[in-house]
């Protein structure tokens, strides 16, 4: 078809391309988080069911897949998504800050609300992912720390004040991130339009609320003794 003029940059060099990478990797993580949140709710059905579920996660796909292969596949996709998302977010944010080197003397608060909550929220989520892996995957910082006893490990985490604070702050940040992020991703991928705007915003708010409430229900249940 068309011949490309040589000066046009490639996909990754373009701000729109990087934003597309950010949107797709964000949606991959979002899909994972919805499934993850629903899985977490199994904790309300008791120790055996939850620990059985945790064991099943390692045997999914057998006998075609070997023990833990599916789990590792998911982990690899997630690591790629986190890295792609964080790198594009970092590079775009730097570019954006450099594009406005002189600030206005007359300040307005509203202007950068969404951008700021996305950047700070993203940093909080990045730190949380590290903590969360050390706490419940590697069990490095967990108080119970017995492999195969996921239920007891979770109860141990949410029996400490800092475990609850870190988790709840991160899940509120997640809600805000998804609220702007889901709608943004629709615009970035070109499915946003004036006619669909309301539906997309409602979906974004619903998804954000569902994730935050679903995830936070677990520490609340431990704190109130519903799960122990």
């Amino acid at each position: 078809m068309d011949r490309r003029p040589s000066k046009t940059p490639g996909f990754w060099e373009s701000t729109v391309g990087k934003k597309t990478v950010m949107a797709v990797s964000g949606l991959v993580m979002l899909l994972y988080l919805v499934v993850h949140m629903l899985g977490n709710l199994k904790i309300f059905f008791g120790t055996d069911e939850f620990n059985g579920y945790a064991h099943w996660l390692r045997t999914v796909g057998e006998p075609f897949m070997h023990y833990e292969w599916t789990l590792w596949l998911v982990r690899i996709v997630l690591v790629l998504a986190v890295v792609a998302h964080a790198v594009s977010a970092y590079q775009l944010s730097r570019r954006d800050i450099n594009a406005r080197p002189t600030k206005y003397v007359h300040k307005r608060k509203r202007a950068s609300y969404a951008t700021r909550t996305m950047r700070w929220g993203g940093i909080i989520l990045g730190l949380f992912i590290v903590w969360h892996l050390l706490d419940l995957t590697t069990l490095t910082v967990n108080e119970h720390a017995v492999h195969g006893e996921a239920y007891q490990n979770v109860v141990a985490t949410f029996s400490t004040w800092y475990g609850n604070v870190i988790y709840i702050v991160a899940m509120v940040a997640l809600g805000f991130h998804v609220r702007h992020g889901f709608w943004s991703a629709a615009q970035t991928l070109g499915v946003g339009s004036a006619a669909r705007d309301r539906a997309l915003k409602t979906a974004a708010n619903g998804l954000a609320l569902l994730l935050t409430v679903g995830f936070v229900s677990v520490p609340v249940a431990v704190m109130t003794g519903v799960v122990s």
Binding site: K18, K19, N98, S112, A114, T188
Partner: peptide
């Protein structure tokens, strides 16, 4: 050297 869009509106 324009910045990217963060859809602040």
């Amino acid at each position: 050297g324009f910045g990217g869009c963060t859809l602040t509106g």
